[in-house]
Each structure stands twice: as C-alpha cells, then as structure tokens.
Design a binder for these strands. Structure first.
Length: 462
RNA sequence: GGCCCCGUCGUCUAGCGGUCAGGAUCCAUGGUUUUCAUCCAUGUCACAGGAGUUCAAUUCUCCUCGGGGUCACCA
C-alpha cells in the first residue's frame, strides 16, 4: 500500500508551495488506493504556534483534502524519539558531544578563514575521558566519512553525494534532549508507514542525512520524489514576501477550491495537453514520474482563467452556496436561475460574481457621469417614457423574452435603432453602460422595480 | 565558496533522434453581442551558447554560460 504524507512545520499559514506538494502526495496516495497522512512538525517550540497549526488544518478543510489517519504532532512524541536516541547511543552509532557553542563557532570561523568546508571535526567521536563540567552534551550520529550516498529519486533520477563533501557527525539531539529534524523525520516516516516521500527539492541535499539515520536504525528506505520549487517572478524561491502565498487568501479573493487545485496540479506536472482536471481525473492520472525537473515561476494568469472556467461550469445551486461566503443569499430568489445563468459567464472570481449580483439586484445610487452625457441626450427620455408606459401597460411580463418583446415594440413604433433605447435604458437600470442583457436584468428585478428605476433616472438627471 | 539540481514561446507546458517544434494562458486583430463580458476565429512569440556522437540533433555526451537550492543544537 502506498502511504504518503505532508509534514508542515506550523510557523505560519499554509503556503501555496506547500499545498502543491501536499496535493501531489494526496493524489498519489489516492491513485493507489493508499493513505495520505498529515504530520505537524512542531519540535521547535520557540517558532511554532497552535494557531498556525490550526490555520493549516483549516486550509485543508476548505480544499477538501482529508488526512486518512490521525494527525501526528511531533511535539507529543518525545518518548518515542528518546527511545531511538538511546538505542543509537547503546549501539555505539551515536555519541555525546561536549563541545560548547562557542567552541563550535570558533571552529567554523577558523574553517571559513582557511576556505575549508565548515563541519564538525569529530573531536568527541571516540572520547572516553572525563566530560568537561557544566556542558550539557548534544548527541551526534556517527556518519560515514567516506563513500558514496545515492539518493534514488523518482523525479531527478539517481543523485550521488560523496560523504566527505557533505557529511559530518550531525546533531540528532540538542543539549536539552530534544531531537532534531533529520532524526524525527526518519523515525516518524518509518513509524507511520510512509513509503513514498514527496517533498520540495530544497530537501534533496539533506536526504543523505536521513538515509544515514535510516541505515543506523535499520529502517526500510522509502521512495523519494523531490519536487522542484515554485519561484517568484524574480526567479527566487517563493516566500511570504511575494504577495498572495497564503492559501486562504485565495478563498477570500473568490477562487474556488476546484480552480486552485487544478491550477496547482499543473504547476510542475502535466498530462499531455490536458489543462482541465476534475478531482477524479487528477486522482486517476497523477503520477510523480511525470513531475518536471525544473522550477516553475508563480504566475496567476492561468488561475484566473481556470477560476472563470469553473464558475461558468458550476451549477447554480453550487454557486448559490459558494456565494454565501460573500454575503449573497439567493436561495429563495425566484429568478435565481436566470440571474446566475447570465452572470456566471461574466465573473472571474466569486467576489466579482457577488458584486455583479448586487449591481443587478440593487438600484443604482449614482449614474456614471460620462455615460449620462453619452446616453441621456436627444430624445432619450421620450424613449424611456415610452418604454416605461409599455411596461406599465403590459400584463405581467416575467421572462427576459417578454421584456425583449417590449423593447422591440418601442423600437419599431418609434422607428429608432436598438441602441437608442438600449443605452439610456441600461444607464437607467444599472447606472452605467455595461452589464448583462437588459431583458435579463428586468426579468430579475421585475415590472415594478423596472418602472421605478426608469422614473428615478429621469428625475435624477433632468 | 563547497556540494547538489535545473535550462523549449513573457508564463504553465508537450516533445522521449527525422515534427511546418504542439497545446494552454497572456497580448493583438476580426466576428458574434443594443453595451461590456463570454464565446468563436486568426495572428505574434521559444529549443541559452559551443563542441562532439550520428546520415540526422530540441532530444544523447562533454564544456561554457545562466538560474536555483543547500550547507544550524530551523524545519
């Protein structure tokens, strides 16, 4: 069974890049009928917060990505890690190092001055004397000092590292006894049964360290897939300074989960020329072997296009539901279908859609100045009055085509072009010269409101 | 700087020795629309550079250049 995981550290909101790797992991598990697990990496007490962890969970909730097991919090697993640390110590695969931070800094500075690679020099590796007083030791693993370590990566291929280039006896437990990242990742992935690790390629260079841990503990190695970074327009790793990187900000801006997910799945992954993927299609088609090797630049032009695509293709019931987040309650509106059918073609975001709804359902409070000069001139008011009279005299127009017929009759009786009535009427009804079809607008607001808006417009502008 | 990764239209990408280098988005133009938007059509735009290998390289190899990542008692 394929078991994947997403393991964020709760130092802030869920990031767009994190979401993409989470999505990849989720899809790969689903495709194989496996499990997708969530683990909160909160071992660094100073930098983590519960709110951040909750924010991440909220984002997953919004997007409908569910973990298939209990959510693991590393902060609650000290006992487990302590057990493995002891085992490593007992097996002679790790040791206590009494070097002080000052000594370490000094060592690094000397190495830098000599243009050497900064690394721990292994001075306590085989130490058997009396430990210095007043220093709480860290625990370091005995890493191989020579040989080749190969990361068999499903995206990048075999990546070879020379131990002497990159390794030293790195710390696996801090002076206060708490375990460090590379140790706990290996332990937790093993214990959770994770056998396919999909993560950002910024982790590629410390994968050898985790391999050392796997080997020292005798764990089976998972498969690795290191997904390329998402860059900002400047070509650098996407960070919180780059505008909208908080997943939940997309909810507020009016993007749908379907569009965001579709957008993200195509960033660094593709399936031929296909652009539109439903969640079901993603689940059946996704394969990490098709992930690109190169980084991609974050650019939301395509997200806008996808979002409008999904809005156009959503049912009116779905839209009604989504719109409630933006303060629009249409559930009991009798012309809801007509309104949404007309408006969903026109909106890039749910937020825009909400605005468009309001522009129809609420009478204009002002009239665009330029538009007034352009449309309320000549015999515009005569035409409007004639039309108003038609509406008034007609019995119960309901559908757009009823109103269209009314407009037609005025046009033919007065022997004018359609624009002669369209422009002023549009301005009277909506306060501006653009918007959805007038017949639709009138059908939605009804006969009384139509007449009211016409009267009001004439009054306000004469 | 050491180590590692990457390099096809502005952007997302297809390509897995022989293609007019394809699609999408963006942009522009035209059509549809009483308007705007949608929609439809058309168009502009790319293999980083140089050596090899080969009858043939975007595709394989090497070098150069360029970009990125990582080098913690952070994750």
């Amino acid at each position: 069974m394929v078991v994947t995981r997403f393991a964020p550290s709760p130092t802030g909101y869920l990031h767009i890049g994190g979401l993409r790797t989470a999505l990849f992991s989720y899809l790969w598990a689903k495709k194989n009928g496996g499990k997708f697990l969530l683990r909160i990496e909160d071992t660094d007490k100073a930098r983590n917060s519960e709110e951040a962890a909750q924010a991440i969970l909220d984002a997953f909730e919004w997007l409908g990505l569910k973990s298939d097991g209990e959510i693991i919090y590393q902060s609650k697993r000290d006992d487990i890690y302590a057990k493995y640390i002891k085992q490593l110590l007992d097996d002679g695969k790790a040791y206590k190092c009494y070097m002080s931070k000052e000594e370490l800094t000094e060592l690094r500075e000397t190495q830098m001055a000599n243009k050497q690679r900064t690394m721990y020099d292994g001075r306590y590796r085989d130490f058997e004397g009396t430990p210095p007083q007043g220093v709480e030791p860290v625990i370091r693993i005995k890493a191989p000092m020579s040989g080749e370590i190969i990361v068999r990566d499903g995206v990048k291929g075999d990546v070879k590292f020379q131990a002497e280039d990159i390794l030293d006896d790195f710390v696996i437990a801090r002076a206060d006894g708490s375990p460090t990242y590379n140790l706990v990742v290996a332990i937790d992935d093993y214990l959770m049964g994770v056998n396919e690790v999909i993560r950002g390629d910024d982790h590629l260079s410390n994968t050898p360290k985790q391999i050392i841990i796997y080997e020292a503990l005798g764990f089976d190695m998972p498969s690795f897939y290191h997904v390329p970074m998402i860059h900002n327009s400047g070509g650098k790793k996407l960070s919180k300074r780059d505008g909208a990187t908080d997943v939940m900000a997309y909810k507020e801006m009016g993007y749908t989960p379907a569009a965001l997910l579709n957008f993200l799945v195509r960033l660094g992954w593709s399936h031929g020329d296909q652009e539109i993927f439903s969640m079901d299609e993603m689940k059946t088609l996704f394969n990490p072997q098709d992930i690109n090797k190169s980084a991609s630049i974050y650019n939301t032009e395509k997200l806008d296009w996808l979002n409008s695509h999904y809005i156009k293709n959503s049912s009116n019931d779905e839209l009604t539901n989504l719109l409630t987040d933006f303060g629009i309650l249409l559930t009991s509106h009798d012309k809801k279908e007509i309104l949404l059918d007309a408006l969903k073609e026109r909106a890039k975001t749910l937020k825009e859609l909400a605005t468009l709804v309001l522009e129809v359902t609420s009478a204009p409070t002002s009239y665009d100045e330029k538009a007034v000069k352009k449309a309320f001139k000549g015999d515009a008011f005569e035409v409007l009055n004639a039309f108003g009279a038609k509406v008034s005299a007609s019995d119960a127009p309901k559908l757009p085509l009823d109103y269209h017929a009314l407009m037609e009759s005025v046009v033919s009786e007065m022997e004018i072009g359609f624009g002669k009535i369209g422009q002023p009427l549009r301005l009277a009804l909506l306060g501006k010269l653009s918007g959805p079809g007038l017949d639709v607008v009138m059908s939605v607001i009804g006969k009384e409101e139509t007449m009211l808006r016409i009267e009001k417009a004439i009054l306000a502008n004469s």
